[in-house]
Amino acid sequence: MNEEKMLDGKVVVVTGAGGGIGRDIALMAGAHGAHVVVNDIGASLRGEGQDEGPAASVVQEIEEAGGKAVANTDSVSEPDAAQRIIETAIDTFGRVDCIVNNAGILRDTFFHKMTDEEWDSVLKVHLNGTFNVSRAAAPHFKAQGSGSMVHMTSTSGLIGNLAQGNYSAAKLGITALSKSIALDMQRFGVRSNCIAPFAWSRMISSIKVDTPEQEQRVARLKQMTPAKVAPLAIYLLADACDTSGQIFAVRNNEIFLISQPRPIRSVHNSEGWTPAQIGAQAIPALKASYYPLEVSADVFSWDPV
Score class of each variant (00 low, 15 high):
124 K>Q: 15
266 S>M: 13
77 S>P: 06
159 I>A: 03
218 V>A: 10
30 G>F: 03
58 V>D: 12
247 I>C: 04
179 K>W: 03
277 Q>K: 14
197 P>T: 06
21 I>V: 13
143 A>Q: 13
178 S>Q: 13
188 F>S: 15
29 A>H: 08
250 V>D: 11
304 P>A: 00
85 I>E: 07
205 S>M: 01
76 V>P: 10
52 E>V: 12
229 V>A: 05
236 L>I: 12
211 T>H: 08
138 A>P: 07
60 Q>P: 01
222 K>R: 15
92 T>D: 07
252 N>G: 02
165 G>T: 15
204 I>C: 02
7 L>W: 02
107 R>C: 00
256 F>E: 13
181 I>W: 12
126 H>F: 04
265 R>F: 02
186 Q>N: 12
274 T>W: 08
114 M>H: 12
227 A>S: 14
151 H>K: 03
72 N>L: 04
107 R>A: 04
178 S>P: 08
136 A>M: 08
70 V>L: 06
159 I>Q: 10
246 Q>M: 12
145 G>T: 13
294 E>Y: 12
93 F>K: 10
257 L>H: 11
295 V>Q: 15
73 T>E: 04
19 G>H: 11
243 T>P: 01
256 F>C: 03
125 V>L: 01
34 A>C: 00
5 K>L: 07
266 S>G: 15
251 R>F: 00
80 D>K: 13
107 R>M: 01
184 D>C: 03
303 D>M: 10
246 Q>D: 14
31 A>E: 15
272 G>I: 14
80 D>I: 08
257 L>R: 14
270 S>I: 14
76 V>K: 06
215 E>H: 07
260 Q>M: 13
106 L>R: 09
80 D>S: 14
103 A>Y: 05
303 D>P: 07
264 I>S: 06
108 D>P: 00
54 P>Y: 04
184 D>Q: 14
9 G>P: 13
302 W>M: 09
248 F>P: 10
188 F>M: 06
157 G>C: 06
219 A>W: 06
83 Q>R: 14
278 I>L: 09
272 G>L: 08
293 L>V: 12
293 L>F: 05
20 G>W: 02
179 K>L: 09
141 F>C: 04
244 S>A: 10
25 I>Q: 04
116 D>H: 08
273 W>R: 12
121 S>Q: 15
82 A>K: 14
281 Q>W: 03
135 R>M: 07
290 Y>V: 10
259 S>I: 09
276 A>W: 08
294 E>V: 11
68 K>R: 14
170 A>K: 09
26 A>F: 01
278 I>A: 07
183 L>V: 15
287 K>C: 06
186 Q>A: 13
212 P>A: 00
124 K>H: 12
207 I>D: 04
141 F>I: 07
302 W>S: 10
111 F>M: 15
48 E>F: 00
208 K>T: 11
285 A>E: 15
113 K>C: 02
90 I>W: 02
182 A>E: 11
173 G>C: 05
141 F>Q: 12
69 A>Y: 10
253 N>F: 02
186 Q>I: 06
75 S>E: 14
147 G>I: 00
191 R>V: 04
38 V>L: 01
68 K>W: 01
206 S>C: 04
244 S>H: 06
134 S>R: 09
205 S>V: 00
153 T>I: 06
